[in-house]
Write a protein that binds this DNA or RNA. Structure first.
Lengths: 129, 129
DNA sequence: TTGACATATGTAATAACGTTACATATCCAT
DNA sequence: ATGGATATGTAACGTTATTACATATGTCAA
């Protein structure tokens, strides 16, 4: 077992995101956890930071919000892309080796060392379109 | 000539971004334009909104900041990707038809109607790496 | 078991980013 | 010149994120 246990606050934040049907802002998470004793944004941001490091949670940059990772556990995934429905808020997570490869190629020939890549498609999902 | 003239505020904001060596936040733009009479964030956001619509400016979602488009004028470009150096702040703009095609394919088979796509690579540029 | 260090937590204050609401001005076609 | 659309000015507020500082808890080695 490589996995380190989550702390109490990390568990609370992850559970909140897992139960949600869509992305939540840090402040929404805070509000949902006031009953559990949360009082300040930092409690949420600190838990999110650890969860992001472990890939259990993703940050949606174009939304300033967070979602639980759709995949099981800690399995390392490559580049993840997100499709975000602006009507219903649903987020689909997918990856594409070819896209990943093309971006790697660009980085290679430009000498750019990539640390993190964000791909977010905003629009309307099949149900809402 | 299809192009509509920019207003005074739009011109000021675009010039500020064009002169900058990297992305600027709306509030940094505001500060740089106080001498020209800017007093409130809304003056900046309103100008940015129009400039974004016309493709003269891009918003970097992962930075909450804005850059002047690297290309000439109003020419419609497809999907644009950004590589953002976290050391020197320099931003490179590029596009890749294959990436664009793959994302379109994904949208097609998922029934997702894309309105806007964000691709941002954070890391270090060739000079800084 | 104690002491030293790293990690986690609690709390307040503040900074940074963005929007709503409302009033006024300017442009342009009729 | 007047009516509508667009642009601007200003204040207040809402939302997102960080800094600073104090306290607690866990781990490991002497």
């Amino acid at each position: 077992m490589i996995t380190v246990d989550l702390t109490k606050n990390q568990t609370l934040v992850l559970n909140t995101l897992s139960r949600a049907s869509g992305p939540l802002s840090a402040y929404t998470i805070l509000d949902q956890l006031r009953a559990e004793g949360f009082r300040a944004p930092l409690q949420v941001y600190r838990a999110l930071e650890k969860l992001l490091e472990r890939g259990l949670v993703h940050r949606l940059e174009s939304l300033n919000a967070f979602v639980a990772c759709a995949h099981d556990h800690d399995h390392a995934h490559g580049l993840t892309a997100f499709a975000i429905c602006e009507k219903c808020g649903q987020v689909s997570e997918f990856s594409d080796e070819i896209v990943e490869g093309r971006l790697k190629d660009w980085a290679g020939k430009s000498g750019f060392r990539a640390a993190k890549t964000t791909i977010e498609i905003r629009g309307n999902c099949a149900n809402c379109a």
